[in-house]
Amino acid sequence: VYKEIAITNGCINRMSKEELRAKLSEFKLETRGVKDVLKKRLKNYYKKQK
């Protein structure tokens, strides 16, 4: 499980701001904020899904 999260986090870290926004809107999450906030939001979402 932790390895999956680590791989997902690595992918998220390599995403551009536009990619992050697209992914967040896909999951109907808030898309406003600076890049670091968007990354954190997406990581938290994936963590809750596990």
Rank of each mutant, 00 (worst) to 15 (best):
Val1Asp: 12
Val1Trp: 11
Val1Arg: 06
Tyr2Val: 14
Tyr2Glu: 15
Tyr2Pro: 15
Tyr2Ile: 14
Tyr2Lys: 15
Lys3Leu: 07
Lys3Phe: 07
Lys3Glu: 14
Lys3Met: 08
Lys3His: 13
Lys3Tyr: 08
Lys3Arg: 11
Lys3Gln: 13
Glu4Asp: 14
Glu4Pro: 11
Glu4Phe: 09
Glu4Ile: 08
Glu4His: 10
Ile5Tyr: 13
Ile5Asn: 14
Ile5Thr: 15
Ile5Gly: 14
Ile5Ser: 14
Ala6Asp: 09
Ala6Gly: 12
Ala6Ser: 12
Ala6Met: 12
Ala6Ile: 14
Ala6Pro: 14
Ala6Gln: 09
Ile7Arg: 10
Ile7Lys: 11
Ile7Leu: 14
Ile7Trp: 08
Ile7Tyr: 11
Ile7Gln: 11
Thr8Tyr: 05
Thr8Phe: 05
Thr8Asp: 08
Thr8Gln: 09
Asn9Thr: 11
Asn9Pro: 14
Asn9Gln: 10
Gly10Ala: 11
Gly10Lys: 11
Gly10Ile: 07
Gly10Arg: 08
Cys11Arg: 12
Cys11Tyr: 13
Cys11Phe: 11
Cys11Pro: 08
Cys11Gly: 13
Cys11His: 13
Cys11Asn: 13
Cys11Ile: 14
Cys11Trp: 10
Cys11Met: 15
Cys11Gln: 15
Ile12Ser: 03
Ile12Val: 10
Ile12Phe: 03
Ile12Ala: 02
Ile12Asp: 00
Ile12Lys: 03
Asn13Val: 03
Asn13Gly: 08
Asn13Gln: 04
Asn13Arg: 06
Asn13Lys: 06
Asn13Glu: 06
Arg14Met: 07
Arg14Val: 04
Arg14Trp: 01
Arg14Ala: 11
Arg14Gly: 10
Arg14His: 10
Arg14Tyr: 02
Arg14Pro: 01
Met15Glu: 00
Met15Cys: 02
Met15Phe: 05
Met15Leu: 07
Met15Asp: 00
Met15Trp: 02
Ser16Asp: 07
Ser16Ala: 06
Ser16Asn: 13
Ser16Gln: 05
Ser16Arg: 12
Ser16Phe: 03
Ser16Ile: 02
Ser16His: 12
Ser16Gly: 06
Lys17Pro: 02
Lys17Met: 05
Lys17Val: 10
Lys17Asn: 06
Lys17Phe: 04
Lys17Cys: 11
Lys17Gly: 04
Lys17Ser: 07
Glu18Ala: 15
Glu18Ser: 15
Glu18Phe: 14
Glu18Trp: 11
Glu18Asp: 13
Glu18Met: 14
Glu18Val: 15
Glu19Ser: 08
Glu19Asn: 07
Glu19Ala: 10
Glu19Thr: 09
Leu20Val: 04
Leu20Lys: 01
Leu20Cys: 01
Leu20Tyr: 01
Leu20Gly: 01
Arg21Val: 09
Arg21Ser: 05
Arg21Met: 05
Arg21Lys: 15
Arg21Ala: 05
Arg21Phe: 03
Arg21Glu: 02
Ala22Asp: 11
Ala22Met: 13
Ala22Glu: 13
Ala22Thr: 13
Ala22Tyr: 09
Ala22Ile: 13
Ala22Gly: 11
Ala22Asn: 14
Lys23Ala: 12
Lys23Ser: 07
Lys23Arg: 12
Lys23Asn: 07
Leu24Gly: 00
Leu24Asn: 00
Leu24Thr: 02
Leu24Glu: 00
Leu24Met: 05
Leu24Ala: 03
Leu24Trp: 01
Leu24Tyr: 01
Ser25Ile: 07
Ser25Leu: 12
Ser25Tyr: 11
Ser25Asn: 13
Ser25Gly: 13
Ser25Pro: 07
Glu26Thr: 09
Glu26His: 08
Glu26Ile: 06
Glu26Phe: 10
Glu26Leu: 09
Glu26Trp: 06
Phe27Asn: 14
Phe27Lys: 12
Phe27Tyr: 14
Phe27Gly: 03
Phe27Val: 15
Phe27Ala: 12
Lys28Cys: 11
Lys28Val: 02
Lys28Ser: 13
Lys28Trp: 02
Lys28Pro: 00
Leu29Ser: 04
Leu29Asp: 02
Leu29Gln: 09
Leu29Pro: 00
Leu29Ala: 02
Leu29Gly: 02
Leu29Asn: 02
Leu29Tyr: 02
Leu29Val: 05
Leu29Ile: 07
Leu29Met: 09
Glu30Trp: 05
Glu30Ser: 10
Glu30Ala: 05
Glu30Tyr: 06
Glu30Cys: 10
Thr31Gln: 10
Thr31Asp: 06
Thr31Arg: 07
Thr31Ala: 09
Thr31Lys: 13
Thr31His: 15
Thr31Asn: 11
Thr31Pro: 11
Arg32Pro: 00
Arg32Lys: 09
Arg32Val: 05
Arg32Phe: 05
Arg32Met: 04
Arg32Ala: 06
Arg32Ser: 07
Arg32Trp: 05
Arg32His: 07
Arg32Cys: 05
Gly33Phe: 00
Gly33Ser: 02
Gly33Trp: 02
Gly33Lys: 01
Gly33Tyr: 01
Gly33His: 02
Gly33Asn: 00
Gly33Thr: 00
Val34Asp: 07
Val34Ser: 11
Val34Thr: 15
Val34Met: 04
Val34Cys: 12
Val34Trp: 07
Lys35Phe: 02
Lys35Ile: 05
Lys35Val: 08
Lys35Cys: 04
Lys35Ala: 07
Lys35Pro: 02
Asp36Thr: 13
Asp36Gln: 08
Asp36Phe: 08
Asp36Ala: 14
Asp36Leu: 09
Asp36Glu: 06
Asp36Tyr: 10
Asp36Ser: 15
Val37Arg: 11
Val37Gly: 04
Val37Tyr: 02
Val37Pro: 00
Val37Asn: 07
Leu38Gly: 00
Leu38Val: 03
Leu38Gln: 02
Leu38Cys: 02
Leu38Asn: 01
Leu38Thr: 00
Leu38Asp: 06
Lys39Ser: 05
Lys39Met: 05
Lys39Asn: 04
Lys39Ala: 06
Lys40Pro: 01
Lys40Asp: 03
Lys40Thr: 06
Lys40Ser: 05
Lys40His: 04
Lys40Leu: 04
Lys40Gln: 07
Lys40Gly: 03
Lys40Tyr: 03
Arg41Ile: 02
Arg41Asp: 00
Arg41His: 00
Arg41Met: 02
Arg41Cys: 00
Leu42Arg: 01
Leu42His: 01
Leu42Ser: 05
Leu42Lys: 00
Leu42Thr: 00
Lys43Gly: 02
Lys43Phe: 03
Lys43Thr: 05
Lys43Ile: 06
Lys43Asp: 03
Lys43Asn: 06
Lys43Val: 04
Asn44Leu: 10
Asn44His: 12
Asn44Ile: 09
Asn44Trp: 06
Asn44Ser: 12
Asn44Ala: 14
Asn44Pro: 03
Asn44Gly: 10
Tyr45Cys: 06
Tyr45His: 13
Tyr45Pro: 00
Tyr45Ala: 06
Tyr45Met: 04
Tyr45Val: 02
Tyr45Lys: 01
Tyr46Ser: 08
Tyr46Asn: 08
Tyr46Phe: 15
Tyr46Cys: 15
Tyr46His: 09
Tyr46Glu: 03
Tyr46Val: 15
Lys47Arg: 11
Lys47Glu: 06
Lys47Ser: 07
Lys48Ser: 10
Lys48Pro: 02
Lys48Ile: 04
Lys48Trp: 06
Lys48Arg: 12
Lys48Gly: 08
Gln49Asp: 07
Gln49Trp: 09
Gln49Pro: 03
Gln49Val: 09
Gln49Asn: 12
Gln49Arg: 09
Gln49Lys: 12
Lys50Val: 12
Lys50Asn: 13
Lys50Gln: 11
Lys50Ile: 10
